[in-house]
Design a protein around this nucleic acid. Structure first.
Lengths: 244, 244
DNA sequence: AGTGGTCCAATGGTCCAACCAATTTCTGCA
DNA sequence: TGCAGAAATTGGTTGGACCATTGGACCACT
């Protein structure tokens, strides 16, 4: 008998109940990111639970980046909430060393390739025009600055994620991007970092415009490969300087 | 003037300090996942902070899946901790409807393909033998039960993630698997769900054994494609029954 | 009108002491 | 020896208190 499907009842779920009530409240009041939530004392009073319980619930939301608490000011909504949210807490061991960056890149390669393929399948003419616009801006910045501009580059990739039609791509990559933000900009002291990846932006775009998922996937893989090479070059350089 | 070079100062950080002390403790004692942490009362006493503060710190860790609290028993470590951990809190809107499952599958397709390719590149002979063992068990279960066994199937895929050499794959997929696990087992009432995906498990293994990353990637894509087809069939079925 | 200073109420952060609820451990009887 | 019930342990909750920071109100002076 499969008794594993039986016991998911938690008679006590005080703080969870608080969060559920908060979701209801936020939706009812149509609160948007940036707006202020009721104070802890008011919540504690209205929900008939102790203020500590309210605090534990809010602490969880704060940990999930849903909310920001400012002492003396209040608690502010930081992201949109919906009744059926999925929380995917990821804790990555290891910091900013070469290995961690490499592992992150492998994840990005996986998602980037898939997003490009989906994008090639689903992009509307308007979407394609939008991506081309971002591409033009990026290429312009590349020429004037004589190098990759991480800002415009990022916008180009974001556009692809968005057009892929699956918001999860953008969310996952955005979270990683925020984490490694500093290192994706000036990683390991390689001066012309990302230079080699430049031409593949256009080839990816062309595959998308031609509705060629396989091609888009392949070009995306090539792009990340060049970034990985840059990273390895940077690591080798560091190793050399360690010997001095 | 560049006033951006004046970053906000952060004076107080009680609960953060508690977490840092806890990291130090865990490493010093070489605690491994599954082992018990000191009780809240002891921590509160030793660290000279209130039990509430300890609780808030532990609540954060619990939210990150680092720790599990069992009332009446204790607080247990659930994952390895290191001083430089990076937390990636993802909150995804969307629930258990068809669209969400489909989007999840697209993420899984991306990661599965990449993991299979990496696995084909890096697997040692021992790794390959281990994967073959899991494959045999799965095929055995398939024949005796006349259908996919999600447990053994999951073990097979987990082995691939592990051999890929990048722990992020396993972590991300495991988190998603935990979220959707009810639906990955009995999705949408399709009785022979996953049946069609069966042969591709062996073809993936063969590509890995042959050190063929491209082939492994392609076979993994095919496998997920069959699952997507099953899902679409299930959705169509539901739509029909809605009309009655 | 603007600048700086002071005060004060609101709000999140911390603390304490107690009790509740689930779990584990111990005890004593059969 | 076996096991049911008591006792200790441990996380969960409560209510109340005080501290630290914030932001607005008010005021004096320029």
């Amino acid at each position: 008998m499969d008794q594993n499907s039986l016991p998911p009842i938690h008679t006590t779920a005080r703080d969870d109940a608080v969060l559920k009530a908060l979701v209801r409240f936020v939706m009812q009041e149509a609160l948007e990111p940036g707006q202020k939530l009721p104070t802890e004392r008011i919540l504690s009073d209205r929900l008939k639970v102790s203020r500590n319980t309210v605090r534990e619930a809010l602490t969880r939301w704060e940990g999930l980046g849903l909310v920001e608490r400012r002492q003396g000011s209040g608690t502010y909504l930081k992201a949109a909430v919906s009744p059926d949210m999925l929380h995917l807490p990821l804790t990555l061991a290891g910091g900013n060393d070469f290995t961690s960056l490499m592992q992150t890149l492998e994840i990005r390669r996986a998602l980037e390739a898939e997003a490009a393929a989906l994008c090639a399948e689903r992009a509307s003419p308007a979407d394609i025009a939008e991506i081309e616009r971002k591409l033009d801006i990026m290429e312009q910045a590349f020429r004037t600055l004589d190098g990759m501009s991480s800002e415009e580059d990022w916008e180009f990739h974001q556009a692809i994620y968005r057009v892929s039609g699956n918001p999860l791509f953008e969310q996952i990559i955005a979270a990683m991007h925020e984490l490694f933000h500093r290192f994706w900009e000036h990683p390991l002291g390689v001066r012309d970092f990302g230079h080699a990846s430049f031409p593949y932006h256009r080839t990816i775009y062309e595959c998308i415009a031609a509705r060629d998922p396989r091609g888009a996937r392949a070009e995306a893989l090539k792009l990340i490969a060049t970034v990985e090479d840059d990273l390895k070059r940077g690591a080798a350089k560091l190793k050399l300087s360690d010997l001095r």
